[in-house]
């Protein structure tokens, strides 16, 4: 996992569900680049075309609710997003992000970010900085068990090391 990321903010509200992140009609592939081309298009039609590698999603409550489709996490990763920061995540989506190595942070910074603000995240120090507004936030660490999976580079690598 990369220890730092820096990118522009894309804001999304509460209860963004997996049907919105990637509609079912695109679930005929699990290629993350292809999924990324349609990511969140029904919520913000400009997003898939204009998102840049490294950009950061900032959202409200219950991000990723709905179906278990891992394609939702893959689509966000494929679109080039380097981290999703939300007030809270739906549980299957959270598992999927951890399992595939898409960085997520549970933190309510929605009010303190404007669209297109420049954010930088230092995962090691646990600091999120809004460079446009000169504001700093600390983030909570995940529980030890989850950190282990993240540090191993996802669930399958953790499984290989710990179970087989």
């Amino acid at each position: 996992m990369r220890m730092q990321s820096k990118g522009r903010v894309w804001k999304f509200g509460n209860n963004i569900n997996t049907d919105e992140i990637i509609p079912a009609k695109y679930l005929v592939t699990s290629d993350e680049k292809e999924l990324g081309r349609h990511c969140l298009e029904d919520v913000n039609p400009e997003f898939p075309g204009r998102v840049k590698k490294g950009d950061i999603i900032v959202a409200g409550e219950n991000f990723g609710c709905g179906s278990s489709r891992e394609h939702a996490a893959l689509a966000i990763k494929g679109a080039g997003i380097s981290c999703v920061i939300a007030k809270s995540f739906a549980r299957i989506f959270l598992r999927n992000c951890i399992n595939i190595g898409l960085p997520i942070i549970e933190k309510d910074i929605f009010r303190f970010c404007k669209e297109n603000n420049l954010l930088s995240i230092d995962f090691k120090k646990g600091i999120i900085e809004n460079l446009s507004q000169k504001k700093k936030f600390t983030m909570d660490k995940f529980p030890q068990f989850i950190q282990e999976i993240i540090q191993n580079g996802g669930l399958m690598k953790w499984v290989k090391k710990n179970i087989r």
């Binding site: 699990s30 709905g66 179906s67 278990s68 891992e70 996490a73 299957i92 598992r95 999927n96 399992n99 595939i100 996802g154 669930l155 399958m156 499984v159 179970i163 087989r164």
Partner: peptide, 27 residues
């Protein structure tokens, strides 16, 4: 996600993702 249905039979039953499922297939 609707795997939670089987709780009606007194089971613990929960939805997971595809990578979780792959890990379960192996382990």
């Amino acid at each position: 996600s609707h795997t939670c249905t089987y709780g009606a039979l007194g089971a613990f039953s929960a939805g997971i993702g595809s990578t979780d499922l792959a890990a379960a297939f192996i382990t």
